[in-house]
Write a protein that binds this DNA or RNA. Structure first.
Lengths: 341, 341
DNA sequence: TCCGGGTCGTGAAACGTTTTAAGGCCTTCA
DNA sequence: TGAAGGCCTTAAAACGTTTCACGACCCGGA
């Protein structure tokens, strides 16, 4: 039932030595077409499959890379994973997927597993900052995902969150909105903090008073928090004319409450989200959002780690910072009606 | 830089034989605490990491399972993957992720890779029906994902789509809706076909005339197709009073067009979706939807494959069929106002 | 006829584990 | 004091590849 057929069986059947079979597999050009064919048919007839464990043991070159993310179910990482898998599979590498759920303990367990598997390299959004050092001690290439750094001796791939925040608010100001509230996540997380900085940059560069932008912090980056934030805003005597949310889940929550409360979007209040998840375009009012090249991030990271492990000597570590892009939809377009007043 | 420290180095340092080190690693109870400690400190000092390739080569027991899906970026598979990874990691197994994009060629390439890696087993939503046979010939355990089958010699895990369709329409009928349109995907795909059958079941069991349910087929299961379907429906002289969509993406598309067209949901037309994706609850009108236990599917599948490879002899193949659940939200609640008329 | 050179194929070592039979040492008991 | 027996430890074989130094063979030229 199992596949106990080894290179040796193939050799016997084809009446050659095991070395020759190995050559057919790895350097077909050095063996005569006649014998090559003989070997190939033996392989086919026996249903031989290379044992990668033995291969790796001898050659020392593994054929897998590790991908350690907080949670694949998070749309951001889902698409990153997709990109990683695409690139890896083109290069003939397997991708080992690990979710840490932001638990250092889970992370440690996964990293241990990856080290034992002798993966080529690891793409990781670290939970415990120390984990990167431990990986590198073990001789693994590491590429940081969505975790900007200046460390000169490793690669990283991230998106410029500050630029994203600036894009969003610059757009709102250009459309003529003047009382903007940024619904933002907790500032101990890197991304919300940067996005807010970018928003401030936009105000400054536009030469507007700091007062046009207010920050409203919420405890989480999810729909429920967005709903609560929206309720607060509606309860105010003076409402903002635009809301910039630190991610699309918040934005959808806000939008939902606005729609149900009879607030017209964008006529009464405009909304801009962040991430451009699939459903941003499908919302009741299609949502303007800041798009990050998620698959591209994954692809680039995989390329970097493969390149590094191919040429450990000559490899130059790079910090790739992608620039996000603003996708303008109905939720933030200055309506004609209003413009002409 | 790399990690060239082997069990042999540990043995030398701890002044024992390699066999003893192996024992410490695998059967600590047979070795004296004193020597065990000596070995353990040697391991720590040297930063030794087991080489899984060698381990697997000798022992024959791999520590990875393969997960082959159409596309992890599809929310259904995302959650399944999450469940698989959870269970696998508890059992100390790595998960190798593969996307086929419904291409038999990509599928074949991935399966080849998995076979070479000598994975424990494979969880797969097959594209080419023949691939399962080829996997089994090679002695791999296979569990079919979301692909119901009666084959007695393998396991499968799926959801009862027919029951799901029935649930949705039974609910609509019970709420008093009487002109129901099912916006359905192409019927060469298994799931839409089954869901429609279930819908018919519901009509029959409720003792209603077949005319209360109409099927409107669309070419794809995405937002754009939903929008087009909704436009068609609005153009009709006689509109339905409820729409059941074969998945949530369709439903969101329908909802978006309805909202923008001034159709009140559910007062004028109710909507029920399928999948209960995260955004169903966050839609402008929270969407009633049929929920599938996605993570649970992944967990169960992983358990089955691990069980099968642990006890290849005594293992009994099972076909697990989960029953979906209806999550009722605003989009299909019979509004008071109307009920009291 | 002999030699040189090139082309193919061979055989054995090596990779880092696990596993097993065998051996060493102690203790215990007669 | 010797033997039996138990407990730890050891040494060596085995897993399935790749790699590399070497040898066999063939062909053409002198």
């Amino acid at each position: 039932m199992a596949s106990p057929v080894s290179i040796k069986d193939v050799a016997t059947r084809a009446k050659v030595s095991v070395g020759t079979v190995s050559n057919v597999l790895n350097r077909p050009e050095v063996v005569t077409p006649a014998t090559r064919d003989r070997v190939l048919s033996a392989i086919r007839e026996l249903g031989f499959v290379r044992n990668d464990a033995a291969r790796q043991l001898r050659s020392g070159t593994p054929r897998a890379i590790g991908l350690v993310v907080l949670d694949v179910a998070n749309p951001f990482f889902t698409d990153v994973a997709r990109g990683v898998e695409d690139t890896a599979s083109e290069a003939g590498h397997a991708v080992i997927l690990c979710n840490t759920d932001e638990s250092a303990q889970r992370e440690a367990r996964h990293v241990e597993l990856l080290a034992e598997q002798r993966v080529h390299g690891v793409l990781i959004t670290p939970v415990d900052p120390g984990v990167v050092g431990r990986l590198r001690e073990r001789g693994l290439s590491v590429v940081l995902l969505d975790h900007p750094t200046d460390e000169p001796d490793l690669c990283s791939v991230a998106v410029d969150d500050r630029a994203g925040g600036e894009l969003a608010v610059t757009h709102l100001l250009a459309e003529g909105y003047e009382r903007i509230v940024m619904v933002n996540g907790p500032s101990h997380i890197h991304q919300p903090r940067q996005r807010h900085r970018g928003a401030l940059d936009a105000v400054r560069k536009a030469g507007r008073p700091a007062g046009v932008l207010e920050e409203l912090k919420v405890p989480g980056l999810n729909v429920a928090c967005g709903q609560r934030a929206a309720e607060q805003l509606l309860a105010r005597a003076e409402r903002p004319d635009a809301v910039f949310c630190a991610n699309d889940l918040l934005a959808l929550g806000v939008l939902q409450v606005f729609v149900r409360g009879g607030v017209r979007v964008p006529e009464d209040i405009a909304i801009v989200g962040y991430d451009d998840i699939d459903f941003a375009a499908a919302a009741a009012v299609p949502l303007t959002s800041v798009r990050q090249p998620r698959q591209q991030i994954g692809r680039t990271a995989a390329e970097l780690v493969i390149a590094e492990t191919m040429e450990p000597e000559s490899h130059e570590h790079r910090h790739v910072l992608f620039t996000p892009e603003l996708v303008v939809r109905d939720s933030s377009r200055r309506p004609r009606r209003r413009r002409s007043r």
